[in-house]
Design a protein around this nucleic acid. Structure first.
Lengths: 110, 110
DNA sequence: TAAGTATTTAAGCAACATCTTACACAGCTT
DNA sequence: AAGCTGTGTAAGATGTTGCTTAAATACTTA
């Protein structure tokens, strides 16, 4: 989670994530969206996103195509939700979890 | 959003947020949960969290009580959701927004 | 195989983050 | 008022980040 949140904390990387959210995009096209910084800089950002598990790469000939990897956001999103949800909501969730556990247990015993 | 996400990217600060999530906690008590780092360090983290709008402070006599400020997480949480939700879900949301806008417009015209 | 295109890796640097120790300040308590 | 307690601020050391330019790698095309 730590790596994912650190990765997402950078505005350039968030912009990259938006770009690759719904489709594969090549490194060159991505870099084209950031006239203010060099290609190597963008490449480094992409490396960080891959390392954090937030995007995947597919090599095709000369190019490398990047795409969002949603699972990589799971833990971070869960943390946000945990903070966001009100105390009462969390109590409710905890109760439901317990209820499920109890039910599963009964089913397991037959 | 940037400040909030940068603040949340630090593990110590996330731990602090968990502590003040459901109740006010004084600086001293918070610091007590982090034997590994000095009180001033914790104080600095608290300052960053306040500056980011993620916690509020209440001064009471000698002490300062900190508490989570959920609204501060709104933008960051929205970003997470936007990334997390599938393309189809987003299409659906967009359609609903448009539908609402159309309806509101009709109502406004009478 | 030579040249061209797409991209990453390397090296170095300036800016920033995080920690520490020392000090300062505000509010209690005697 | 003097001293204690709780907390923040200042200054500085140290590590990390994000950028740049230069060079390297990998594939494609002539």
């Amino acid at each position: 989670m730590d790596e994912a949140l650190r990765a997402v904390a950078d505005p350039t990387r968030r912009a990259i994530l938006m770009l690759v959210r719904d489709e594969e995009v090549s490194a060159g096209v991505i870099a084209g969206h950031f006239p203010g910084i060099s290609r190597p800089a963008v490449s480094q950002h992409l490396g960080i996103l891959v390392a954090a598990g937030l995007v995947t790469v597919r090599r095709a000939g000369n190019r490398r195509y990047y795409r969002l990897r949603r699972e990589g956001l799971a833990e971070a999103a869960t943390f946000m939700e945990t903070m966001w949800s009100a105390p009462l909501a969390r109590l409710k969730e905890a109760a439901e979890r317990e209820e499920r556990a109890r039910t599963d247990d009964e089913e397991a015993r037959g």
